[in-house]
């Protein structure tokens, strides 16, 4: 497309708004992969579970997406705790995380994706509420509420997770687990329980991110694959376990994707996140804030 500053500014604004949503997607990976050392590549599977639950709630009961978040995120939290228990029992306890555990998450991702195909088919599903259809414009830049809601919820989630981890006892235990499991045992806290709670939170954030996803765009099952790349690119670029890093990396990815889509077309956008991920792994595996 022809170059013009209007387009650039529009793309940057869109990218920043998109980045807020990507922060919601990546925060769960930052917790699970960065802090707990659990390579949860099934994270996008929990996301599409959230998206399709929101769709069902909206279609069958007329749930507003915010009602869906309030109802399904706690379910996700409980499921995540049970899921971590099983993962710990079968893989962590045996020391099998690196091969069997990784393949296990891959299997779960796959089962959820094909399961959704079998139940809902491969058609696109979407939800719509009147307030999502309007947009906010400042000058020549206009942002629809469809994008603004996920942006604001994403920032809110990042902020609350940050406060929880830095201000509460359990939150600090979770941060401590990410640094030294033995030391956590010595102060009398149970690292397995802390990891269980943290994984529950990670799954809950994935469910919310899924609801946000179906607010932004129509959803179909294979969309998960793009989000593996986005979530891990952000997590690695942000320095794996850092919440401010996650925010900055999300914004970078959002802007990079928006610029690519504007000037080269949407068919190149999947390559942006994965390309960024490969480049980060090659040139700066500790992330932008790493030392």
């Amino acid at each position: 497309m022809e170059f013009s500053w209007d387009l650039v500014i529009n793309a940057i604004v869109t990218g920043i708004v998109l980045g807020g949503f990507y922060a919601a997607v990546a925060i769960g990976v930052t917790i699970a992969f960065g802090m707990l050392d659990i390579v949860n590549i099934a994270h996008p599977a929990f996301m599409i579970a959230g998206a399709y639950l929101a769709f069902l709630g909206w279609e069958d009961f007329g749930f507003d997406p915010f009602v869906s978040m309030a109802v399904f995120a706690p379910c996700g939290y409980l499921f995540g705790r049970a899921f971590y228990r099983a993962y710990h029992y079968f893989f962590e306890r045996r020391g099998d995380e690196s091969l069997q555990g990784l393949a296990f998450f891959f299997g779960i991702l796959f089962i959820v994706e094909i399961g959704v195909v079998l139940v809902f088919g491969v058609d696109y599903r979407s939800i719509s509420e009147p307030y999502l259809e309007s947009s906010v414009s400042v000058g020549f830049v206009s942002v629809p509420w469809r994008m603004l809601v996920p942006f604001l919820v994403g920032l809110g989630m990042l902020g609350s997770v940050h406060l929880y981890l830095s201000r509460t006892f359990t939150g600090r235990t979770i941060l401590a687990v990410s640094q030294d499991v033995e030391a956590v045992r010595l102060i009398g806290a149970n690292p397995i329980r802390a990891k269980e709670i943290a994984f529950g939170i990670a799954v809950a954030t994935a469910i919310i991110a899924g609801v946000l996803l179906i607010i932004i765009q129509p959803v179909e099952p294979s969309i998960t694959r793009e989000y593996i790349g986005r979530a891990f690119a952000i997590c690695v670029l942000g320095g794996i376990a850092s919440i401010p890093g996650t925010l900055v990396a999300s914004l970078i990815l959002g802007v990079a994707e928006a610029l690519t889509t504007t000037f080269y077309g949407p068919s190149w956008s999947p390559a942006v996140s994965f390309g960024l991920l490969l480049l980060t792994l090659i040139f700066r595996p500790v992330g932008i804030f790493g030392r």
């Binding site: 790349g229 190149w268 390559a271 994965f274 490969l278 090659i282 595996p285």
Partner: peptide, 28 residues
Amino acid sequence: YLTLRLRGVFFSIATLALAIVLQTLVVN
């Protein structure tokens, strides 16, 4: 050569990325 010096899981994630980057190249 580029990723095997890192922890094993980074190699796994890089291979996932590689497949998608190649697919995007072929699509275009």
